[in-house]
């Protein structure tokens, strides 16, 4: 086993994924005095709930007749607050290596941000995998990605004095239209219809810029790009009546939302069944002792991809995790309603 140095993070549990299943698992672990670090590729907690449907109502959370994806995330964050989990956002776990034994598991994880974690237990709560931008089916677009085609803005200066084309009708497309307009040489917004999902004030601000002639708005879809060595010279617009129009540009930003890719989970040596991780239904442990999988990413006979299933799975995984982390302690089953011990941990006693 390698010698951990000061830059490494040592913890009981690493949870991969900060969606509802991962968040509630923090709670169940916390009741058992187990500390967790949570890693997520997204910039915030909530997973699919906050990324795919923050405003959509959810009706099947027990005890909550109606809650939005964001509301549920906020509630879970409040619920786990007493246990002080440490979040590592905008990071993806790249490698997971077993450095322990069957009865005393230990793991070493590395992220794409260069962090190293040493943990006794790993709980994979990665849902459908990691969220990545959807790439439009434009021939050869991969040759331009990161050079002149971007799915996110890392440095605004990179767009100064450029002819910029932005595609989409949601908040990302509209926000960047408004933010880049002052520094771009020209800006064209392309969308398939004259209706926008983005916040109404962004839409009216955009329409004002169009009315003043500061930006252009085109109805249609980008079908091809032209350029060389990764540098764009033009994007071809297919208008809704079928005509092709060439838009000179040096920057293109397509905003088609996010898609889920399994990503590095496939490389960790776990058994996989159609991109899902098989687990037992007693402990929700994978084929590898000490690695658990909860929520949408796991599979077992009768599995339902419901948030409430993830909650149940996290609770049972925590029980087994306790045996690995505190092998000499006997686990007493207690209720939060009556146990002053648990209430102290929750900060309500």
């Amino acid at each position: 086993m390698s010698h951990p140095n000061a830059a490494e993070i040592n913890t009981d549990v690493v949870i991969i994924g900060a969606g509802p299943a991962g968040l509630f698992t923090v709670f169940e672990l916390g009741l058992l005095d187990i500390k967790a670090h949570i890693i997520d590729i997204l910039p915030r907690a909530g997973g699919q709930c906050s990324e795919l449907y923050p405003e959509k109502p959810i009706y099947d959370i027990p005890g909550l007749p109606l809650v939005t994806g964001q509301g549920l995330t906020d509630n879970l964050m409040q619920q786990i607050e007493p246990f002080g989990p440490t979040f590592h956002f905008n990071e993806m776990v790249e490698t997971l290596t077993s450095v322990g034994t069957e009865h005393a598991p230990a793991f070493r994880l590395t992220t794409d941000a260069g962090k190293i974690f040493n943990a006794k237990v790993v709980i994979v709560a990665a849902g459908g995998g990691s969220f990545q931008p959807k790439k439009p089916p434009i021939p050869d677009i991969d040759q331009y990605e990161g050079k002149s085609v971007f799915y996110a803005v890392r440095q605004m200066e990179d767009f100064r004095d450029k002819d910029v084309v932005i595609v989409g009708g949601g908040d990302s497309a509209l926000d960047w239209t408004l933010n880049l307009e002052p520094i771009a040489k020209s800006l064209t917004l392309v969308h398939r219809r004259d209706a926008f999902r983005a916040a109404p004030h962004s839409v009216s601000a955009m329409q004002e810029l169009v009315a003043k002639g500061k930006i252009a708005f085109k109805l249609g879809q980008i079908t091809h790009v032209e350029g060389n060595q990764g540098q764009l010279t033009a994007a071809l617009l297919k208008t809704n009546d079928g005509a092709i129009e060439k838009l000179s540009c040096q920057r293109l930003m397509p905003f088609f939302g996010l898609t889920m890719k399994l990503g590095p989970v496939a490389d960790w040596g776990l058994n996989l069944n159609e991109n899902l991780v098989p687990v037992d239904t007693e402990k929700f442990e994978t084929s590898h002792p000490g690695i658990f999988a909860v929520g949408d990413i796991n599979y077992y006979p009768g599995k339902l991809k419901l948030i409430l299933s993830g909650f149940h799975e996290g609770a049972l995984a925590a029980q087994k995790a306790h045996r690995y982390i505190y092998p000499d302690k006997k686990l007493l089953f207690q209720y939060t309603t009556s146990s002053t011990n648990l209430q102290k941990k929750l900060g309500v006693s």
């Binding site: 959807k134 398939r192 219809r193 999902r197 879809q221 088609f256």
Partner: peptide, 11 residues
């Protein structure tokens, strides 16, 4: 559904 179709390609 129309809003979600914005995320599809070649609509």
């Amino acid at each position: 559904e129309e809003d979600m179709l914005d995320f599809a390609f070649d609509v």
